[in-house]
Each structure stands twice: as C-alpha cells, then as structure tokens.
Design a protein around this nucleic acid. Structure first.
Lengths: 153, 153
DNA sequence: TATTGTTATACTCTATAACTATA
DNA sequence: TATAGTTATAGAGTATAACAATA
C-alpha cells in the first residue's frame, strides 16, 4: 500500500516530529524525576525566583488549579517552598531551595544535549536554517517564546 | 524578565510549533465532526478499504481496545461498516460507506490548505527546505511515514 | 493454544465550580 | 466585590486484564 499523501505535508511533519521531540524530552527528564511542566516551573523560577503561584500560572499558561498540584509535588520533592507574601498576605511566593536550583540547572542541560541529538543527521548549516525557520514560523503563528501550547490547561 | 534559554532550542521549537500545528489541524477537522484519530482511520481506509480492525490498529499504532470505540463512533456516524470476514470469521473487515468516502476526501483537503497557511510566512524556497529537513529528521528519528506518535496508545 | 474483537475496571487528567482568607 | 490559593466533583481518556468466538 502506498504512503498516505499527507505523510510529506508540512503540517503532518511538524506535528509528527514535534510530538517525537516532546516525547524524547519527557523521557530524558524522567530520570531526574521531573515532568515537562515541572521543568517549565523550575526553569522559570531559576530566572525569576519568588513569583506568586498565580503569576507562574499566567506566565506558563497553566491553569491555577493545576498549578496547586504541581507546586505541591515540587514542594514534596524539596525543590521549592511556599512563602506567605508580606505585602499581600493572600499570595504564596514560590522560591527555589538550593536543591531545587541544582536540579533546575541539571534539567536545563538536557535541552542542548537533546538539540545535538536531534540535529545529528543535519549539517551545521542545515541545523541553523531549520532553527531559524522554525522560530520565524513560531512568531508568525503567534506563539510566544518559552510558552508551550502542549502544557496549557 | 529575559526569555528562557531554551526558547530558541531546536527541541523546544519543534515541540512548540508541532503542538500548534496538531492543534490547528484538530480545530480544522472539528467542523467535519472527526477527530485526528478518525482522520487517520478514514484516510487509511480510503487508500486500502476493508482492512480488519486489528490490521488498522497495527498500521496506525493505535491500541486495538481503543480502535473498538473509534470504529463504533465511525459506524454510528454512518461512515464505515463492519463486515464479518468470510475466510476468517473472527475478524471484522471495515469498509467505507459512500458517505464515508466523501467525508474522507473532504478531510484530506484540509491538509494542503493547512500547509499553505503554515507556510504563509516563508518563501517557496524556505518552505521546500523546511519540509525536506523535517522529512530527513523524521527518517533519522525512526519515524515512519504517516504514523503519528501522538495518536499511539 | 493463539488471535480477534469486546467489555470491565481502575487510574490519570482535566474542567468546572465552589469555598476560605485576604484585599 | 474581587483576587489568590485551595478543594471537590464529575467527566474524558487510557491502560490492563479478562472474556467469548474462532482459528
């Protein structure tokens, strides 16, 4: 039987390769005991520590109800702690622990390693072209830097 | 606050743009009343009608237990029918109805239309390069033509 | 014994709404 | 009244195992 017509389509290839890339990323995070969503939170905090839960949820397009369980898990793992806000006593500021900062750094090293692995079949020039075109595409589609639609809820 | 380092990574961009492409595809199928999985089944049948459920499941990497509900729905919609196999009376051969063949053709037209929309911000040359590199990447990653890892179960 | 299709069960996710404490 | 965080509930989806019919 012939290959389906759509198997060479841009939409299908983007979706197919993207799902595989997301899967590879999740599998490489698994030994560290963190989910892709937990990665997003840890990485965000490592650049901007002490954000309230609500702001974290907004920034990552994750529903605040879901954020509760995420932070619960990260707190259980000892990577973040909730600190009651002083100016506004309704909020919990989320701060990385030293262990949390370390796991965030380890997790972020997964990204360039995976990039190299993904690009192994491409020349340096092809890799740079592909990255640039994907970024142009992301902007044209209205996707924001660092916000993954697959994590939204 | 600065953009995260990973926002320009190949892995992140592939995953980000891929998830958006998959979402756009699903939203464009929705008015036709079919899910991405139903699309995969209909499209497969339009090229190779009358396959048993088990072979459909294998070909699309969808678990046979899930295939039962999928075929139930397609049958309820009037787009396929189960025919008891003659040579092997255990199997149900799945055949498109005339209405099913028509909806399959309409659904398949969604793909080139979405491709054009996705590529609107690229030159013809860039689009061809991007498609070629994604296809090379898909083969290098061991992905098979027309098999979407996100549909697997 | 193995395979096809099916069903039942439990488990995970998620969406929605409602609650509390603060503002 | 509105907002931050939380909890409860129900619904969708999925994985696992087991079943009947046939090979």
């Amino acid at each position: 039987m012939a290959d389906p017509d759509y198997s060479r389509s841009l939409a299908f290839l983007l979706s197919q390769v993207g799902a595989e890339s997301a899967g590879m990323f999740a599998r490489r995070l698994e030994p560290l005991g963190i989910s892709p969503r937990a990665f997003a939170v840890l990485s965000h905090l490592s650049r901007d520590d002490g954000r309230p839960q609500q702001q974290l949820a907004d920034a990552l397009s994750i529903h605040r109800n879901v954020m509760v369980g995420l932070i619960d898990q990260l707190e259980r793992d000892g990577w973040v702690r909730r600190h009651r806000g002083i100016a506004d006593r309704r909020v919990f500021e989320i701060r990385l622990t030293p262990e949390g900062r370390e796991i965030a750094e380890r997790a972020e090293r997964v990204v360039p390693a995976l990039d190299d692995e993904l690009a192994a079949s491409l020349t340096e020039r092809q890799r740079a072209q592909l990255t640039a075109q994907l970024e142009r595409l992301a902007r044209a589609l209205g996707l924001e830097r660092g916000i993954h639609p697959g994590l939204a809820s």
